[in-house]
Computed example of a mutant assay.
Amino acid sequence: MAEADLKRRLAQEIIELWAEITGEGEGIPHLVGEISANPGLNVELEVAFFDDYRIERFLDDGALFFVFPADEGSPRALFFFLWRFLQGKGVPKLLIPGAKIEGPLSESLKKLGFEVLWMTGDSVVEVWATKGRIRYEMVFQRTGENEFTLVEKKRVQ
């Protein structure tokens, strides 16, 4: 029952913060949270904006503290990835500068949840894409036959 209650509370908090997450903040939105069970279940969640992606999870005095990128297209997707992260079932694959992508670029971006709006170039590829309601300008460097390295990623307001 406690797990179901925790899931419900996290989902509710994400929905309540969704407008702030998708708003006009400077930088990349992140969920900063604390979950404790003494006394009773306590869930605190806030939105913070950082220049780079940050992922942290640690226990201190019986409370779980975390920082998680809120870079998903819907509250449902964000909840799903956050829940997996909190359970220790992996870290989401983040598209950050230096990340390598293999395969056709547009298909690989689609698998990561992006919708490609425009793409041009061969050795240096410029991409305009969206993820949910968030727009991005990205620059990739071709590093192989079907391999690309992200050089720059900017959130467009």
Rank of each mutant, 00 (worst) to 15 (best):
F80R: 12
G62F: 00
G62T: 04
V151D: 09
S106A: 14
P39M: 04
L45Y: 08
E115G: 01
Y53M: 06
A48N: 07
A2Y: 07
D60R: 13
S74K: 02
I28F: 01
R9A: 15
G113W: 01
W128P: 00
L109Q: 06
E16C: 03
A4F: 14
A19G: 13
L95K: 04
V67C: 04
N42F: 15
V67G: 03
E137F: 15
L31C: 07
G40T: 04
K111D: 14
G113Q: 02
W128C: 00
R142F: 01
F79C: 02
K93F: 14
E72W: 07
T143G: 00
Q157Y: 11
F50E: 10
N38W: 15
G27T: 07
A99W: 04
T130I: 14
W18F: 11
F114V: 06
G23L: 07
V116P: 05
F65G: 07
Y136A: 09
A129T: 08
P69H: 02
R155T: 08
W83Y: 15
N38D: 12
G90L: 03
F80H: 09
F85V: 00
E34S: 13
Q12H: 13
L150Q: 02
L10H: 06
I35R: 06
N146L: 09
Q87S: 11
A2N: 08
E44I: 08
D5S: 04
A48Q: 15
R142A: 12
E107R: 05
F114S: 06
D61G: 08
L150G: 01
R57E: 10
E126V: 15
F81R: 14
E102C: 04
L78I: 05
R8S: 10
P75G: 11
V124N: 02
S108N: 05
L95G: 00
S36P: 03
E24T: 12
G98L: 03
E56D: 11
F50K: 08
K100E: 15
E147K: 08
